[in-house]
Write a protein that binds this DNA or RNA. Structure first.
Lengths: 198, 198
DNA sequence: TTCAAATACAGAGGTGTACTGTATTTTAAT
DNA sequence: ATTAAAATACAGTACACCTCTGTATTTGAA
């Protein structure tokens, strides 16, 4: 309980404010312009910092973008997602997909598979994996509850859901209400055997 | 039915060879590097032509890429696709998706929705629309034949199929056999009520 | 005094335009 | 018919401008 718990290294410490500004600028630009179109120069400019400052923290654009992606929701949402069934899961998806920024972000990540596969990988590892596991659980619970046929192929259902999200991202306008998204997802899952209990 | 139906304009006619070289180079670069990363300079260089020659034909990159997309399969495949049912339709999709170049092309188009929506639109108008109509027909025929439940939501099924294609493009390696692709699509459609007749 | 941050630099690549010289074709005059 | 003129296409070059890259050097805060 004293001041010098960890002996501070000599010299001027890095500004945490700059740290955050750089990551925020990188994330914004990733969403606005995409990975390939984002340059260190732009990130530095938006963060109110010079290029050298960015280069001191990150060896290159990819490392910077990866950390920017990992910084999303870093603060809150550390716990686990747990859906009791398909309905709640779709509610969450619909809510998420009704926020234009989220939609653009996902599109940018998917769009970067060819040129920057590390980005989608980083996203999957930091967010997607948890979500995918929770989806499996929710699907299994719904099946047990009789909302799906007993022989339902959960893997196929998950693929259908993933494809539906992608398709919706590409074909629907970004200004869409959560209700509309949910209606879309429900329609597809109904055709795939989902029978929600009233 | 003679040679000089349309009186040729004066001056040196444009080299058809150059026309083709420019479009081919543009298409190649679109697939290899993506729309945003493709420059007129690169197209000209690959076509063995100077920039001025490209600018004489096209006002800008977008117009060039659109025409390059429209030039695909311009020669053959002018007629209509007609599938007797889901099975044949999936055969064709699987064949198409087993060619790496086709996969990259579709990914590049989807990846460009935010920055160059005209490209996907051009693709839909020149190829996709026909295909989508044929899909509807194939699905309807299969339903009549009892391969789908009588109350099947054809629209939902088409969305599921579209989503499955997108998802496969993003999550599977490009070196995939037609058989594997078909197995994937069949698994998803089976979960969506498809029961192929033996 | 030590490291963070700003400044400066050299190089690469792209853009759109303009101008040269040459090749190819039509049109008009002889 | 032959020939000259006009029109157009293409390669090549240059321009002025911009953006980005990565590093080297200097300034200044802790």
């Amino acid at each position: 309980m004293s001041t010098t718990r960890v002996p501070r290294p000599p010299g001027r410490p890095r500004s945490q404010q700059v740290d955050e500004a750089v990551l925020a600028a990188a994330l914004d630009l990733l969403i606005e312009r995409g990975a390939s179109e984002t340059s260190i120069e732009q990130v530095a400019q938006r963060a109110g910092v010079t290029r050298a400052t960015v280069y001191r923290r990150f060896p290159g654009k990819t490392a910077l973008l990866i950390q920017a992606i990992e910084s999303v929701h870093q603060d809150h949402d550390p716990g686990a997602i747990d859906w009791p069934g398909i309905a709640r899961m779709l509610d969450d998806w619909a809510l998420y997909l009704s926020v234009p920024r989220n939609r653009r972000m996902l599109r940018r990540l998917y769009a970067a598979v060819d040129d920057h596969p590390e980005l989608l990988r980083a996203y999957r590892e930091s967010h997607g994996a948890r979500r995918a596991a929770a989806e499996r659980t929710a699907l299994a619970r719904s099946r047990e509850r009789g909302e799906l046929p007993p022989d339902a192929d959960l893997d196929a259902l998950q693929q259908i859901l993933g494809g539906a999200v992608l398709h919706h991202l590409g074909a629907w306008p970004d200004e869409v209400s959560a209700g509309e998204v949910k209606a879309y997802l429900v329609a597809l899952l109904r055709q795939a055997g989902y029978r929600p209990q009233e």
